[in-house]
Amino acid sequence: MKVKQLSVFLENKAGRLAEVTKVLGDAGINIRALSLADTTDFGILRLIVDQYDQATQVLKQHGFTVGRTEVVALEVPDRPGGLASVLQILSASQINVEYMYAFVHHSGKNAVIIFRFNNLDRAIELLQQQGVHIFKGQEVYRL
């Protein structure tokens, strides 16, 4: 149910993001989803890629600090109130969204959104009970 996400620490310097994407591109790694959180000094790039282990390895070889986090990918109805209905389930149980971002790819009529929760296992349990579709890791890497 969980999806492996890479994160990379980036100083706010021209060309750093380009470098990460080039390193991955040269290694034949495809980026499935990404988000960049930034402050005045640094940024944190979060990535979901098709080849997790290989991506971690090439980034480390190029001197990047790479972190690993588990996230979930949910299928959210692509209509008004679609996201709200999913979030409702979680807020009712006091589960916080640490961050979220949308997937690059659309799957049918619905959107795919990546979530990081403060209590991942509990969130998965609740969402499953409510019949929300959670993608398996392998599905996401191949989407």
Binding site: I44, T65, T69
Partner: peptide, 18 residues
């Protein structure tokens, strides 16, 4: 310098560190 032991993918945690 940040290394793997201190790095977090959450901005909040990195700012707390600073």
């Amino acid at each position: 310098e940040v290394d793997e032991a201190t790095f977090s993918d959450e901005v909040r945690k990195m700012q707390q560190l600073e």
